[in-house]
């Protein structure tokens, strides 16, 4: 069995994000594997542990995105492929899906493709469904648990109303949520293996496709207006007095 996981590299969640001359800056914070995609790698490794599988991590990004792939290798993925091309700089979700679908086809014998729920930089959450549609494979999104059995995959989807249990024949595309289980830490051996691994780079020419035309175009970026008022601490002699004062403050805001 072969499982492909799609991972993105993003600025760390703790990073202070700002704009300088219209460019996004994250100071000296590191670039990391998208946190949701760590769950995708974890989900793939859980299936590998149970059934045996080759886990391939793929990432579209600049050369520096190798680090995110190394993280997946250190966690236990078997292979990693970087998809990098100067023509891929302004990639929207549709474009990413097109490129990922082409890469998955080139890999050839994938039974399962596992995505994170959403990237934390552009955060559209569109890529898994769009990749599935391009491949023509069933999409089982927002999986909180996964079972493989007799050539079928069965997942519990975490939706607004609770859980929907669905299944489909392989090959299939999944996206996963946090309920899948905490991502494992890279082992010492894993880190050593990852540091020695060769990560091939595929260009658009290798994939046999031309650069996708962006369908969503960015016009501007801006920082949200900063909060005008600092926190007002409510004080009083007794907790009842504090509570009553706070209630008046909240009612005066007319939010209820």
């Amino acid at each position: 069995m072969k499982i492909v996981t799609c991972i993105k590299q993003v600025p760390d969640t703790e990073a202070k994000i700002s704009l300088e001359n219209g460019k996004v800056q994250w100071g000296d914070s590191p670039l990391v594997i998208n946190p949701f995609d760590e769950y995708a790698v974890e989900a793939a490794l859980q299936q590998k542990d149970k059934h045996g599988a080759t886990v391939v991590a793929i990432c579209i990004g600049p050369d520096s995105a190798r680090e995110a792939l190394k993280h997946a290798l250190a966690m236990g993925a078997d292979e990693a492929i970087l998809i990098s091309d100067a023509a891929l700089e302004n990639l929207d979700a549709q474009g990413a899906a097109q490129v990922l679908a082409a890469a998955i086809r080139k890999i050839g014998d994938a039974d399962l493709v596992i995505f994170g729920r959403q990237s934390i930089d552009s955060g559209t959450g569109l890529t898994p469904a769009q990749t599935a549609r391009r491949l023509g494979w069933p999409l089982l999104s927002l999986a909180g648990s996964i079972e493989l059995n007799n050539g079928r995959v069965r997942v519990e989807r975490v939706i607004e109303e609770g859980r929907q249990i669905v299944s489909a024949a392989l090959p299939a595309v999944l996206s996963v949520v946090q309920s899948i289980g905490e991502p494992r830490y890279p082992s010492f051996m894993g880190i050593r293996r990852a540091s020695r691994a060769t990560i091939p780079t595929w260009s658009l020419a290798d994939l046999g496709i031309s650069a996708p035309t962006p369908l969503v175009e960015q016009r501007a970026m801006f920082a949200p207006p900063s909060r005008e008022q600092p926190c007002e601490f409510i004080q009083g002699e007794t907790v009842t007095e504090i509570a009553e004062k706070l209630v008046e403050k909240i009612l005066a805001e007319k939010v209820l």
């Binding site: 930089d121 016009r219 801006f222 920082a223």
Partner: peptide, 10 residues
Amino acid sequence: IYEGKLFEKV
């Protein structure tokens, strides 16, 4: 974008 740390117009 960036978890609400920035916004974009598209």
